[in-house]
Design a protein around this nucleic acid. Structure first.
Lengths: 233, 233
DNA sequence: ACCTGAACACCGTTCAAGT
DNA sequence: ACCTGAACACCGTTCAAGT
């Protein structure tokens, strides 16, 4: 009786595909899209691939490396030609459009943005993005070292903003934090926190897209007009 | 025989102190200082307080809230008078000094910085810091709405930098990531990534303190000189 | 009201043993 | 070389039951 079971189940799941790094990461991306990065665990991934968690360690060093690979896969979706192509177009407009596209991609997966802040990405798609941002910012005519250091600021701002404000099944706890901050800021005592009181509506208000693009412009203007410290030149 | 044990151990641990929110958070801070935030778990904390994990939920909503409370406790260490006090002193110098002090505090606890990026802090000490930064930046003479929006940029930059580069028993994986990025950037193909090649030494080089204070200056200059988008005013 | 034990439903990573 | 089972050493959170 039970002896018949095995051949049948072999026919049903006949070709358990061989493990490859590629296949592992593709599966990880699929799980992330459908259930979020928090479900992309070694154990869950192994289950999905019909093996034990220990098997994955042949192809992936640890969970952090796995998440980094997932991030780079996702960066393939950034629109590098955003804002219109060609040298005719306004470099600033293009630069902000590309950075906004990058932010938008991470916005859907804030947990991935958080992991990008911790473990510096160094994948293929990340390097392509850096190359593109460098070439656009260079067209500002700013000194080369300011451009070099400025890239980090721009990408860090975009990444941190996605990590902070990203949507996606955000655990209800996050909205609570925002509420708590809003409440705390409004409830503040005029005598001890006069500046907060005075700046209060603007401090927390404003549409996210406006704040994001204003931030990009702040950085771009600052990068162009702020020379490196003497000691670093 | 065993009956004698109990009274003895009662005398050794006589007054198991009553649980309070205060006591829980103080213990959490102590564990973090000696072993890092990753050890500040509900279970470990309960063990330290000689109780079960479920008891803590009377005083603390969840792990995220616990970490937020630990963060605010730590923010008491920020030197709000850094850079010299008084209206005589240069506001920019003072502002950068306060922000650097904030960054330094978080630098010792990068995991806390990470949690600050995710769960907006709203504690007492955080509000005091915001108040101080607001009052310093106001002295720049920049329009009030630019100051209001700019605060976020400055604090986010400081927090993200601490989260990224923070030291502290940093899991050896992080240095590996930096090495990987450095290697990847150096190994890049001139034909496909000419801009990276051209900017390469500066892209990753430079002492952390110089980059940090340059970043603050970039933001300050940008905030002062970048008007809000028309639609947001 | 506060505290507890026990359970539920998970984690990452290692390692000896197999093929 | 690759894969596996089993183990080690943990997690957060809930909930019925006790005081």
């Amino acid at each position: 009786m039970t002896a018949q079971r095995e051949p049948i189940s072999r026919r049903e799941r006949p070709a358990k595909p061989a493990l490859t790094r590629r296949g592992i990461i593709d599966t990880a991306v699929r799980i992330m899209r459908s259930e979020g990065l928090e479900k992309v665990t070694m154990r869950r991934l192994a289950q999905e691939l019909d093996t034990g968690p220990s098997s994955l360690y042949v192809y992936v060093a640890n969970t952090a490396e796995l998440h980094a690979a997932v991030l780079d896969a996702l960066l393939g979706e950034v629109d590098l030609a955003a804002g219109g192509a060609g040298a005719v177009a306004d470099w600033r407009h293009q630069l902000i459009a590309v950075l906004t596209s990058y932010t938008r991609v991470l916005f859907e997966h804030p947990q991935l943005a958080r992991s990008a802040l911790v473990a510096r990405p160094s994948g293929e798609n990340y390097l392509i993005l850096v190359e593109r941002v460098l070439s656009l910012l260079s067209r500002s005519g700013a000194p080369q070292e300011q451009v070099a250091w400025g890239i980090d600021l721009l990408l860090q701002y975009a990444t941190a903003t996605a990590a902070e404000h990203g949507t996606q099944k955000s655990s209800p706890g996050l909205q609570d934090d925002w509420k708590a901050l809003t409440r705390a800021a409004h409830a503040v005592d005029e005598a001890t926190h006069p500046m907060i009181k005075a700046h209060m509506p603007a401090l927390l208000a404003g549409p996210a897209e406006h704040r994001l693009s204003w931030g990009f412009n702040v950085l771009i203007n600052g990068i162009i007009h702020t020379p490196l410290p003497y000691a670093a030149r």
